[in-house]
Amino acid sequence: VDNKFNKEQQNAFYEILHLPNLNEEQRNAFIQSLKDDPSQSANLLAEAKKLNDAQA
């Protein structure tokens, strides 16, 4: 993981990586967004979790 991520951002990265119901395309999009703007990690994680739950 890129060293410019802080602890919260790293946690978001790993959580998104391991959400079971996202397809690869969705997962990659969230990860790319996280890399583009790490400050949005909490929002991105919340969105990813919502999508993950919706696809459960």
Rank of each mutant, 00 (worst) to 15 (best):
K49Q: 08
A46D: 15
N3E: 05
N23L: 14
L51P: 01
P20K: 04
N43W: 05
L45M: 06
N28V: 06
K35W: 07
A54F: 15
L17C: 15
E25A: 13
R27S: 03
L17P: 02
A48T: 01
L22Q: 00
A54L: 15
K35S: 05
E47V: 13
E47T: 08
Q55E: 14
K4G: 15
A56E: 15
S39I: 13
D37H: 09
Q55A: 12
D2N: 09
L22V: 07
N3K: 02
N3Q: 12
E15L: 06
F5V: 05
P38C: 04
S41P: 03
K7P: 12
F5G: 04
Q55S: 14
Y14H: 10
L17V: 07
S41T: 13
N21F: 10
Y14C: 14
Q40K: 12
L51E: 13
K49M: 06
D36G: 06
I31P: 00
P38V: 08
S41I: 14
L51N: 04
K49Y: 08
L45E: 04
F13V: 06
R27E: 01
N23D: 07
A48Y: 02
L17T: 10
Q40F: 07
K4V: 14
I16Q: 01
L22M: 05
E25S: 09
E25D: 13
A46S: 15
N11K: 11
L22H: 00
L19Q: 05
E25K: 08
Q40M: 11
L17E: 09
L51I: 15
F30K: 01
A48N: 00
F30L: 06
Q40T: 14
K35P: 01
K35H: 08
I31R: 02
I16K: 00
K49D: 04
N28T: 04
D36Y: 10
K35R: 14
A54P: 09
K35I: 04
H18N: 09
Q26M: 06
E25P: 09
N6A: 01
D36L: 12
Q40I: 14
F5Y: 07
L34E: 00
N52H: 02
S33K: 11
P38Y: 02
F13I: 06
P38K: 04
S39T: 07
K50I: 07
S33D: 11
I31C: 11
Q9E: 06
E15G: 05
L17W: 11
A29Q: 11
D36A: 09
L34P: 00
Q55L: 15
Q10C: 07
A56S: 14
F5I: 04
Q32T: 11
L22T: 00
E8S: 01
Q9N: 04
N21H: 07
E47P: 00
Q10R: 06
F5D: 10
E8H: 03
E8F: 03
Y14R: 13
F30D: 00
E24A: 10
A56L: 12
S41D: 04
Q10Y: 08
F5W: 07
N6P: 01
A12I: 14
D53Y: 01
P20G: 12
P38E: 02
N21Y: 06
L44K: 05
L19M: 11
K35Q: 07
A46M: 12
F30G: 00
L45V: 08
N43Q: 08
S39D: 10
Q26T: 07
R27P: 00
L19N: 01
P20Y: 06
L19A: 05
H18W: 12
P38N: 02
N28F: 14
E15W: 10
Q26L: 04
A12W: 06
D2V: 03
Q10A: 10
Q32G: 12
N21T: 06
E25C: 14
S33L: 04
K50L: 13
D36V: 02
F13Q: 11
E47R: 06
N11T: 09
D53E: 13
S39E: 15
E8T: 02
K49A: 07
K4N: 15
L19S: 02
N43K: 14
A56P: 08
A42N: 09
K50W: 14
P20R: 06
A46G: 07
N23Q: 12
Q9M: 00
Q32A: 12
S41Q: 03
S41G: 02
A42I: 10
D36R: 07
N23C: 10
A12D: 05
L22Y: 00
A46Q: 13
K49E: 04
A29W: 12
K7I: 11
A46K: 15
E24Q: 12
L34N: 01
Q55M: 09
K50G: 14
S33G: 11
N6C: 08
S39L: 07
Q55P: 08
N3D: 15
D2Q: 05
Q26G: 01
N43G: 03
K35T: 05
L17N: 09
E24D: 10
D36T: 13
A12K: 02
N21K: 12
E15D: 06
